[in-house]
Every structure is written in C-alpha cells, then in structure tokens.
C-alpha cells in the first residue's frame, strides 16, 4: 500500500497556545480517514497546514512522498470550513476559475455539476444558493481535477437532515469509486458511517488512531434485567463478567473473553431465573470516543 499523506512531528503554536502539538500521522491510498475531535482540537489547523495556507511552527509533511507545494495541491480536492466562492459569480464562472488554477479543461465543469446534481442552477449567482447547494458546489469544485485525495472539513455542518443525508450519500459514492478521503468532523455518527480509519485529536495532540471496524471489538457488554432481588449477586457468582454496572433495574456485564450472552442465559436459567431483558451491546464510536477522551483526561491529571 502506498502512503498518500505522511505528517511528522507537526506543530503550530499561536503564542502560548499549541493549536497542533507534535502530530504524526499517515494516510494510505484508498483510506477513508476520519479526523475526530471536539471543536478547537486542531482539526482545521492541521488541514490548513498540510494545504500550505498556515505556516507550521515546526515539523514536516509529505504528499505522495514529496514535499507539499502548489503542484501537489493541484492533485487534491479540498474544502476547509464553509464553502468559499466569489459571491457575484455564477456556479459555472466560479468553477472555471478553479479549472484555470488546477489546469484542467473547462469540459470538466459540466461533468462535476451533474455528479452533484447542480446543473439546473449552474448559471445562478453563488450568493443566491442555499447552504446545501453551496456545499454541493464546493464538492463539485473539489472533484474538478479528478483528485487522488479529497479533504472535507465538516462537510455537513449547518445542513438540514435531508441535506446531511444527500451529502453523506455523495461522500460514500465518492469513497466507493476508490478515492482517498480525509474527513474532519465532530459528528461521530458521520465518521462511523463513512470512514474506514479514524484518529482522535484533543488540544492539538493525537490521542488515538485505529480502524473504525475495530470499534466495538474487544470486551463484550451484555445487559440483563430480571425480577429477582439478588440479581447482582447471582451475576457476580457466575464468574463470567469482569465488571458489573447497575443502572436502575438494569445490569450491564462487561464479559470476560470467551463468554457470550447465550451462556449468561443458560446460567440464569439453571439458577431458576428468567431474564426479561437480555441484550448484547456493541460499542458505538461515540462511546469509544468518550472513553478515549476520558482516559486521556484521567491520564493527565
């Protein structure tokens, strides 16, 4: 597999504030890479730096194995924060400027406008577009050069549910065509639905990186409810769980390796107890994310 982007020890300081702090990261070809982090964790600063609009304090980064400059940027389609275009120009006029910057033929304009289904309004001025149309135009603009990598920063920010679904489908479609995508977001659900890999930033530091499909692997959680007084004691007596947590009348067992919900059910039945609620909980990215953040904060204090 070849490396599309490699970041080494990147830092950006604004006075005493460390917006990005000693960040190292690699993105391989074909990855759909999610960058997660709360607001202000340095996602946009990192993307701005690797796109040369922000000068880093220290560290290096490479695109396609070479130093990033305007020629590597021509092979990247990127949108940072909200869509930016000349408001007094039409969609087509705006995209033609991008064509000239990226040195691709004007014929691409019609093609990408069809992909994002914006051809009906292509001759209206940008300032008359709705937010959803603006987002679609910026995705069209990022697609103009048939990019090897797409960088999307909060692409569904501010959209209504229908708009979010549209943009998300578009991103999945683009990802399926084999393009590498780097997606920054604070919406965990979005990253889980779209991405293959993810990393978590906090206060400019990289605190976790891994596969989305690995989320939920590892320890299994089983929720149990039953109308028995001493349920907790019975469950503890089984020796199957490393930890049991009580929430009202519900008990969540964190299982030892090798034990499953079926064995819990069998065990309870042998004890003469019928469970009225028995559910296997897979961990969501949200839960993992909060765990990672909590672990980090615990570790620091």
């Amino acid at each position: 597999m070849d490396t599309v982007l490699s970041i080494k020890n990147l830092s950006k300081h604004y006075g005493r504030v460390k917006a990005v702090d000693d960040l190292s990261l690699e993105v391989q070809r074909g990855n759909v890479f999610g960058i997660l982090g709360p607001n202000g964790s340095g996602k946009t600063t990192t993307l701005g730096t690797i796109l040369n609009v922000i000068n880093q304090t220290s560290g290096t980064f490479e695109w396609f194995g070479q130093k990033g400059d305007q020629n590597t940027r021509k092979r990247i389609g990127a949108i940072l924060e909200h869509p930016i275009f000349y408001p007094y120009l039409t969609g087509v006029q705006n995209l033609k400027i991008v064509c000239d910057i990226k040195e691709v033929p004007y014929s691409r304009v019609e093609e990408v406008l069809k992909v994002v289904s914006l051809d009906e309004r292509k001759d209206s001025k940008f300032k008359t577009y709705s937010l959803g149309m603006k987002q679609r135009l910026s995705i069209a603009s990022a697609l103009l050069c048939d990019p090897e990598v797409m960088i999307l920063d909060e692409p569904t920010n501010g959209l209504d549910p229908q708009g979010i679904a549209e943009i998300r489908d578009l991103i999945i479609e683009i990802a399926n065509s084999g393009k590498t995508i780097i997606l920054a977001s604070h919406l965990l659900d979005e990253v889980q639905k779209v991405c293959t890999h993810f990393c978590v930033l906090q206060r400019g530091k990289l605190i976790h990186t891994g596969l989305v499909e690995d989320v939920g692997k590892g320890s299994l959680n089983v929720e149990v409810k039953a109308d028995v007084e001493n349920l907790q004691a019975v469950l503890e007596g089984s020796g199957m769980a490393s930890h049991i947590k009580r929430e009202l009348d519900k008990y969540t067992m964190t299982m030892h390796n090798g034990y499953s919900a079926a064995q819990v059910n069998e065990y309870l039945f042998k004890q003469g107890i019928t469970a009225k609620h028995l559910v296997v909980k897979t961990k969501t990215l949200e839960k993992q994310f909060l765990e990672i953040l909590a672990g980090q904060e615990g570790g620091q204090s």
């Binding site: 796109l51 305007q70 020629n71 021509k74 990247i76 275009f85 000349y86 408001p87 991008v98 910057i101």
Partner: peptide, 21 residues
C-alpha cells in the same frame, strides 16, 4: 481586498495557486 473578505485567497491557494502566484 475582496479576496481577503471573501476568503477566496485562501481557497485559491488550497486549489493549487501558490501565494506568490
């Protein structure tokens, strides 16, 4: 100045123009 207030200078650079260009 419009390039600065619309932030299009930033987008131009992201799209593949160097600051000098």
């Amino acid at each position: 100045t419009n390039e600065f207030s619309y932030r299009t200078i930033r987008q131009n650079v992201i799209d593949g123009l160097s600051q000098k260009e």
